[in-house]
Design a protein around this nucleic acid. Structure first.
Lengths: 190, 190
DNA sequence: TTCTGTGAAACGGTTCACAGCA
DNA sequence: TGCTGTGAACCGTTTCACAGAA
């Protein structure tokens, strides 16, 4: 991957997960990983993993990959991972997600009392303000935690506001142009 | 797809989403959909959609697919969708998910007071009981809503109990054999 | 015209097979 | 022996091109 060769899609997905697995392994003090183990954890074969890593730098033939080393290689590829993300919906699910691993830059809810009562480390706005606020803040991603009846409308507003990625925790499927917007459906198992 | 021809993997994934989209469209009283629209909503081209549907039955060349009809076709393919699912972790996130679109057959938490206090429509057990309870109940899927430090251990217990699908809402990545277990990572955006 | 249906070609990704290093 | 690296074959999926129906 010396030049700016575009990573295959499937590879990119695996590499992103791999990065977090390596983080975890390093935190546990583990020094090496084989392509075989990585393959198991990523749902791929060892061959595929080695291909994914092809060109990112030399490994240790005969030994195994050095965790810290491998991590450094991937960091170069992945670039900055944090995205400016907003939370839409401050019900019990939304509030629970607010504590989670996301770091939100703003929150929205349609109910005025929610906006006053919630104690969150980011500014809150009514959902009618989604478009102007997201445009001003240059928001890239959104987490949707609203009811089934509102999700589609809220999602459309987010798209209108230039959001490129939506993680949908609402119980309804979103009908968005998935050629332009990346949608992750979260509500159901299947 | 007349015989029991195995559906391509990519196709199956799209069909599952499509089924829920059709449900929604029918609920809104919409009568027809084109392969082009479905493609947009599913992140594929119209060609691909038509190929996915190839052999499931006749469409209406010149007109478009009839929503109700298409839905009936897919139901035959998909079979029963509900799975026996358990919820692990009864913190704020777990409790919020308990209200959500899942229908759980049991819940687990490591803290005895949580088991007493929570008012949920399914039986609760300490996490030490995961293996026997899940085996007895023939559980197929689990939703993990515990902290980063516990998730790996809980996941391993679930696997030991025969669970085949884990939806991970914890902030840590799971290291499981994804050849055998289907894992959905939910914690992070990427 | 606008739609679906469908072989055939093209593409992308995985697996194979084997070379090379510890 | 156990590991990585990599061209080549293989296979699943998508795209193309066009036939046919409303």
């Amino acid at each position: 991957m010396t030049g700016g060769r575009p990573l295959p899609d499937a590879t990119r997905r695996r590499l992103e997960l791999m990065e977090r697995i390596l983080e975890d392994l390093e935190g546990q003090g583990r020094q090496r990983v084989t392509s075989r183990d990585l393959g198991r954890w990523l749902g791929a074969t060892a061959d595929t993993i080695r291909k994914d890593l092809a060109g990112t730098g030399p490994g240790n033939p005969g030994a195994a990959y050095e965790v810290a080393d491998l991590r450094r290689r991937l960091e170069l590829l992945s670039g900055p991972r944090d995205q400016r993300t907003v939370l839409v919906g401050l019900g019990s699910l939304g509030l629970a997600l607010a504590e989670g691993p996301f770091s939100f830059v703003a929150g929205f809810d349609g109910r005025p009392n929610r906006l006053e009562q919630a104690e969150l480390p980011f500014p809150l706005f009514p959902t009618t303000e989604i478009v102007p606020v997201c445009l001003r803040m240059v928001v890239e991603a959104a987490v949707l935690a609203v009811g089934a009846t509102e999700s589609q409308r809220m999602a459309e507003r987010l798209v209108q506001a230039g959001v490129r990625r939506v993680v949908n925790y609402s119980p309804a499927v979103l009908r968005l142009d998935r050629h332009r917007i990346e949608v992750w459906e979260r509500g159901y198992l299947v």
